[in-house]
Design a protein around this nucleic acid. Structure first.
Lengths: 158, 158
DNA sequence: GTCTAATTAATAATTATTACTATTTAGGAA
DNA sequence: TTCCTAAATAGTAATAATTATTAATTAGAC
């Protein structure tokens, strides 16, 4: 019991450290959202998290939850599922291809790479699902954005 | 000139065939949208396509364009860029993982597969972009949906 | 040409996301 | 501790994307 609590505390403290590193104030709302996120399964939307938090924190606003989740994504506490939150985009390219996505300008660029086209599908997946398409998403910073990025990204010296 | 035109016609006729196979009527609107899509670069949104079509077809409605594009995606004339069009979803899973997506119920399931974690990044991409994350998306039909799918999907005999 | 089910235009309704502003608060300095 | 200030929040409004509705039109089979 005591041990479980302290493990949980360590995980938690790590996030608190991240907050401080990013000059984010530690507010009860952020703590509540963090706790909710850490105990989430699957891929919740802002609204799902908002509804859960409201139970213990009735007058938190949706905006705070949404904004905070985006902040968390910014500082790397959680991820945004690829593509979601963007307007629906159509892809008229009928040749087998893969996508590079820029995290900064959201640009999506097609690229071709045969090795990726013939990737093997894991057995347990193949048994359970009927796979129709395989796509690799590379996420990062594109050439146009990289220059405007701080040097700390490429230079890891203090 | 004549040759180019007939190649274009062949490509076009293939799509017309797809229309007929799917019992879709061939309307001038659909032709216009098809032409616009086929000449599109990148990953246009419904609105972008709508704006372009309006120039040659001023009183087409947005709804028609949007609905038709979805229909095209249904019959496989084009794709929807993975994830787009969906509510933003957060991913609290901090372990390296990949996604299976069901095309029917939109379910996203995490899975783990080391081979995918250590995929090589093509040289030309590595030179141009600063890659931070690699993710494989498997698209298909999930176990829960497969039973409600027509047998023609799994049985390719006439 | 006639008929009918499918399609469309126009618009309304719904839903997601972002923006705004007055108020409150975290956390550093005295 | 108390004070101060920049940051964060609640509440709400605005914007934008998507889906639904309905009356009118039309493609394509006969």
């Amino acid at each position: 019991m005591i041990k479980r609590k302290s493990i949980r505390k360590i995980v938690f403290d790590n996030f608190i450290k991240k907050f401080k590193e990013s000059n984010l104030k530690i507010t009860p709302q952020r703590i509540a959202i963090l706790e909710q996120v850490l105990s989430s399964q699957g891929h919740p939307s802002a609204e799902e998290i908002y509804n859960k938090i409201k139970k213990s924190y009735p007058n938190i606003s949706f905006d705070t939850v949404n904004r905070t989740l985006l902040t968390f994504a910014d500082i790397g506490i959680l991820d945004i599922v690829e593509g979601t939150g963007d307007v629906r985009r159509f892809d008229p390219n009928d040749k087998s291809h893969h996508h590079f996505r820029c995290k900064k300008c959201e640009r999506i660029e097609d690229f071709y790479y045969e090795d990726y086209d013939k990737l093997e599908i894991p057995e347990n997946i193949k048994e359970k699902f009927n796979i129709k398409k395989i796509r690799v998403i590379l996420e990062g910073i594109c050439d146009k954005c990289i220059s405007s990025y701080s040097s700390s990204e490429t230079d890891s010296n203090p």
